[in-house]
Design a protein around this nucleic acid. Structure first.
Length: 217
DNA sequence: AAGATATCCAACCGCCGTCGA
DNA sequence: ATCGACGGCGGTTGGATATCT
């Protein structure tokens, strides 16, 4: 089975995406959608003599082997990589390395304001669904977005500013029949968040819920 | 300058869903 | 229906680096 993440904005024509202000149905799950190594990568064994998968940072040589493998065989069948590319890495590790660092379409620059806004909007509406977010941000990975969000969250909490900008919350309009679902999702998420959150965040959430229900009356 | 502390992020882990035998 | 292999996902960890004292 080969599943390739679609990096183009995947919302089909005519369909709403979580980024649209006019939102969507409840069941719209979008996505199916310098080297410190001194030992050879070929002879990594545990004390019992059976081959052991290597862990830790990837060396340039390992990267090259993985890249070469994917160029020839394509992405997927990751457990075959260790045989065909002679890499002592488990399939998971190979997949992660490829998707997060070696894919040619990855953006290397920091997140820009537009991307940040997209992430916030998606987080408001869907919560921490990193891979779904990645499908809306070409060239970005779920891991990257997750790290970005966690860093941002800590920063906001440190300086006591709200997680979601007020203007973004007030821009949102949510169909009335979505409110219970949204409330439930938010409640679950916020219960945890609020342990460390600020009163400002609580107020914002209330404003958000009240405005959202009024808009669609 | 040096040690302590904070921050970032690459990589791992465990769980879950899907698929084919 | 069951089981194992595989891949995807979100949470967490720990080493490297930056900043502070």
């Amino acid at each position: 089975m080969t599943v390739v993440r679609v990096d183009e904005n995947p919302a089909p024509d005519g369909e709403n995406s979580p980024l649209d202000d006019e939102y969507v149905s409840a069941d719209d799950e979008h996505v199916d959608d310098e080297d410190k190594e001194t030992d050879s990568i070929d002879d990594y064994e545990n004390p019992s003599g059976t081959p052991q998968m290597k862990k830790g940072p990837w060396s340039p040589e390992e990267d090259k082997r993985l890249k070469d493998y994917v160029e020839v065989h394509g992405a997927g069948n990751w457990n075959k990589v260790q045989q065909n590319a002679r890499l002592n890495r488990c399939g998971k590790s190979c997949r992660l390395r490829w998707t997060n660092h070696l894919r040619p379409d990855l953006k290397k620059e920091p997140f820009n304001a537009e991307e940040e806004e997209k992430i916030i909007k998606l987080h408001i509406r869907r919560g921490p669904k990193w891979s779904m977010m990645a499908s809306y941000l070409p060239g970005r990975t779920d891991n990257e977005i997750k790290n970005f969000w966690n860093t941002r969250k800590r920063r906001k909490q440190r300086c006591g500013s709200p997680l979601y900008p007020e203007y973004m919350l007030s821009q949102l309009s949510v169909p009335l029949n979505m409110m219970p679902v949204l409330k439930l999702k938010l409640q679950t998420y916020v219960q945890v968040q609020m342990l460390f959150s600020t009163p400002a965040n609580v107020i914002q959430l209330l404003v958000f819920l009240i405005l959202g229900s009024r808009i669609h009356h």
